[in-house]
Nucleic acid binder design. Sequence first.
DNA 1: CAGTATATATCTATCACTAGATAGTTAATC
DNA 2: GATTAACTATCTAGTGATAGATATATACTG
Lengths: 178, 178
Amino acid sequence: MSKTRADEILDYAEREIRKNGFDGVSFRDIASAIGVKSASVHYHFPTKADLGAEVTKRYAESFIDGLGSPTDPSESAASRIGRLADAYIGSYRVESSTCLCAVLGSVVSHLPDETSNEVRTFYDRLGAWSATALEGSTTVLTPNLLISLLQGAMVLSLATSSEDPLLEARAHAVSLVS
Amino acid sequence: MSKTRADEILDYAEREIRKNGFDGVSFRDIASAIGVKSASVHYHFPTKADLGAEVTKRYAESFIDGLGSPTDPSESAASRIGRLADAYIGSYRVESSTCLCAVLGSVVSHLPDETSNEVRTFYDRLGAWSATALEGSTTVLTPNLLISLLQGAMVLSLATSSEDPLLEARAHAVSLVS
DNA sequence: CAGTATATATCTATCACTAGATAGTTAATC
DNA sequence: GATTAACTATCTAGTGATAGATATATACTG
């Protein structure tokens, strides 16, 4: 079963939003990139609010799922946190673009409601994953601290074209969990 | 000596970029907000790249200057870091908008060169301030970690409409410096 | 089976509006 | 008279969005 058109649209939209921001991608950009007309993109996602919400929803699911289980008893909390950090590092290395919700989160009041709601849902779910992942370990780290540190490091790495902030953030987080 | 027109433009542009992103403000928005025509805004700042660069340069200077001295010998490193964190907290409380360079940093590859250069300069200078502020203290914190944590917490606070991430980040940072 | 209806996915063409930018003009200040 | 700062008017390009036509595939009906 090959990729549907809707998925092609979401793939390209996600990539461009992560690079250029929500206002940095247009229906025409998307259409011409995948070889259709902009009206066809509107057919699949009537408004930009719909498109943004779908992109964000799909991103959230895929990101959280990609983290794997936060409860595997054979794995240490430090290892789980390491995997979380690696998700950010991998994203930086492969795509040179930030977490979608770091891009959208900084302008959340400017987004259509349908879209900003999905951003909040992402942070809720990531917070819940982190809380579970940290359970049982004695650490000064909280979910908020962990997410702040990694998201901030991602943006700093991007802005300064250096992996260092991300690598330091990973080491710091892992070292604080035992 | 009252505020010049150029300053009025920069004031409004900064506020709107921090809320809505670089693409979220237009020459027309700015012009109508301060009661002139868009051509007059172009007179002061010929291109949007110029405007973005000036806004960012001014923001960087004002933010770093506002932090005060990182070398006052009568002050502890923890207190200096506390002041840095308070700058972010104050900005969240007063304007409900992020650090300008957190907004711009996440889409740095999409910005005009003149503007992205100023973003990098900001992070250079903030890194230098932090490095000096941490000097003499024994801590696992690095400038990158400190900046990552605070900027990330700012975005998370904004996206989740909660001061908690920022307050936790402040407490964490200060507790690690001695 | 033949014919018709329905749903899906695309197209062309266009709308009203906004974007950044510029040429040329006018008024005030130094 | 030059400089500064604004103006009017306009350009080209791009924005999200919509109406209406078309092709195709599936599904129901006589």
